[in-house]
Design a binder for these strands. Sequence first.
DNA 1: TATCTTTGCTAACACCGTTAGGTTAAATAC
DNA 2: GTATTTAACCTAACGGTGTTAGCAAAGATA
Lengths: 214, 214
Amino acid sequence: MGIVDRKQRQKEEVRSSILDTAWDLVVTEGWHSFSIRKIADAIEYSVPVIYSHFENKDAILLEFNRKGFRLLAETLAAAKAGHTDPADQLRAMGRAYWNFAFANKEYYQLMFGLGIPTCETVIKIPAMQQFNEVIIGSIIAMVPQGQQPAFDPFLKYQSFWSMLHGLVSINMSRLNVEQNESHGHHEGLPLKVLEDVLCSFIRGIQAAGLPAEN
Amino acid sequence: MGIVDRKQRQKEEVRSSILDTAWDLVVTEGWHSFSIRKIADAIEYSVPVIYSHFENKDAILLEFNRKGFRLLAETLAAAKAGHTDPADQLRAMGRAYWNFAFANKEYYQLMFGLGIPTCETVIKIPAMQQFNEVIIGSIIAMVPQGQQPAFDPFLKYQSFWSMLHGLVSINMSRLNVEQNESHGHHEGLPLKVLEDVLCSFIRGIQAAGLPAEN
DNA sequence: TATCTTTGCTAACACCGTTAGGTTAAATAC
DNA sequence: GTATTTAACCTAACGGTGTTAGCAAAGATA
C-alpha cells in the first residue's frame, strides 16, 4: 500500500517546488515578480494548486521568514563558536550579522520588512528564540556573575540588535549613499561605522552597570 | 484677468485635497487603503484627474516623504535648541527622534520603508541635509577642536542614526514584543533601551578617538 | 465494471495602476 | 452674439494582482 506514500511524496515535491521557484523568482527578478500567478506559471501548474498547499500569499512569505531566521541564527552560532572570549564573540557575531544581511539581501528584506508588500501579519518565528539566546549568552559571559546587580543582559541584547539592524537597513535602503558621497567618503565607510558601533557597545558593557547620568 | 489666477488656485486646491485625502486614508485605514482609485473616490473626481497632478502613485509617496523629513528635521532642531551642552543636545535629539517616530508612525514607516509597497525608487530628499547637519553639529561640538585628529563626526553621525533607527524599527514592527513578554519585561523596556543606547553613544564620543582594539 | 475520491483546471470576482479617446464646458476670437 | 479653440474631465479599457467557485478528468476502491 505504498500508493498513499507516493502521493504524499509527490505532494511534498510540489510544495517544495513552489517554495524553490518562488524564491528563485524573488532572487532573479526582485520582489515585484513574487506573484501567485507567476509562481504557478513557472511550476507549470494552475493557480489553485498553490492554494491547496498554502493558505494564501502571506503563508509563503512566512515560510521564507522562518527559513531566514533559521539561517541567521545558524550563522551567528557559527561565528560565536570561533571564539572563546565573549567580547570577541560579540564582535564576530556583529560582523556575521552584517555579512548575512548583505549576502542574503532578499531574506533580510523579508525578515525586517524593507519595502515588501503584505507583511502586516505579526509573525511568530521559533528560530528567533535561538537568535537571541546566542547573543545574550555572550553578553552575560562578559560581566562576571554578581558583579553588576543592576545589569540587564536582555536590555543590552536589544541595544546590540538595534544598532546592527539600524546600520544594515540604512545602508541597504541606500538612504545614506548620497550622503556618503556628498561628504567625500569612499565606499568603505559603512564597515568603519560597523566597527565603531561594535567597539562602543563592547566598551559600554565592560564599563557597565552605571545608569544614564540623567 | 484674474481668471487664470482663479484657475491656478483651484488647481492647487485639488492638488492639496489629493494629498490631504490620501494621508487621511493612510492614517485612518492603513497603507492598504492607499490607492489611486480610493483617493479619486474620496475627492469625488475621476481617476485621471489625479494623474494630471502627479506623475504616478510613487510621486504622491515622494511628496509625503519630503514632508516627513521636513517634520523630523524641524523636530530635531527644536529639541536641540532647548540645550546648550552638546551631550544634552544629543540626548534630547535622540528622545525627540524616538517620539517623532511613534507620534508619526505613518510618516516614519513611509520614510524608512517598513512594509510599504513601491518604495523601490531611490529618493532624493533635500531636508535630509538639514537632518544630518543638526546632528553632526552637536557631535562636533562635543570634541574640542584638534584634540582628536582621527575623529570623524560623520561616522559618529551614522552610528547615532543607525542606533536610533534600529531601535525604532524593531519596536515598531513588533518583532520584539513577544520577546519582551517572554523575558518577563514590562512595557517600559524600549525606553530603557533608548536611554542605554544614548548613554553608550555619548560616552563613546567623550572617550573618542581610540580605534577598535582589534 | 461501476462508484467514489482526489486532483487539477477554467473562469470568474473584485481589486489594482495606468492611459487612450471622446465629451462637455469654459475662454477666446471674430 | 456667434464660432472656434482650448482646457477640464469622464468613461472605458488594458493588463496585472489575490482569491475562489464549480466542473472535468483521472485515479483508487468496491
